[in-house]
Amino acid sequence: MTGIVDIVYAEYNYWIYVTLMMIGFYAMIAKKNLIKKIIGANIFQTAIFLFYISLADITGGTAPILVGGHGGEHVEHAADVIYTNPVPHVLILTAIVVSVSTTAVALALIIRIYNEYGSLDEDVILAARKSLQPEFSEYARQKDVAEVNHQ
């Protein structure tokens, strides 16, 4: 059993990332409330950020800002200092901005949906759409047929 414990401990960042990501994934597909779906998507994205940043880490490494790079101080030789990997940091900085943008647009759409239908529940919204225009939503009709078959 010590082998398994060692494997889990050596890659515990990966286990935490998978757990968080699956929590977000479950919220995205199982919850009916649109706000909770957005929260799930955010947890999912955060898990990926965490995964990338943890991949960049080097034991004993410092932040990727050059030591003594401001001039005036004693500049150590670059090989003497271990820096963590800067490339995932940059990628995740991009991803965070995109995440903020998508969340903002999604929340704005949800506000409009709430003003229109008076509900955030997926089933209520689909039922309201179906009653407005019977052949409007293909998905809603298929869902209805499936429910009838189930009964």
Partner: peptide
């Protein structure tokens, strides 16, 4: 404010 009832997933 509009009521926020009956919303749960």
């Amino acid at each position: 404010l509009p009521d926020h009832e009956g919303v749960d997933g």
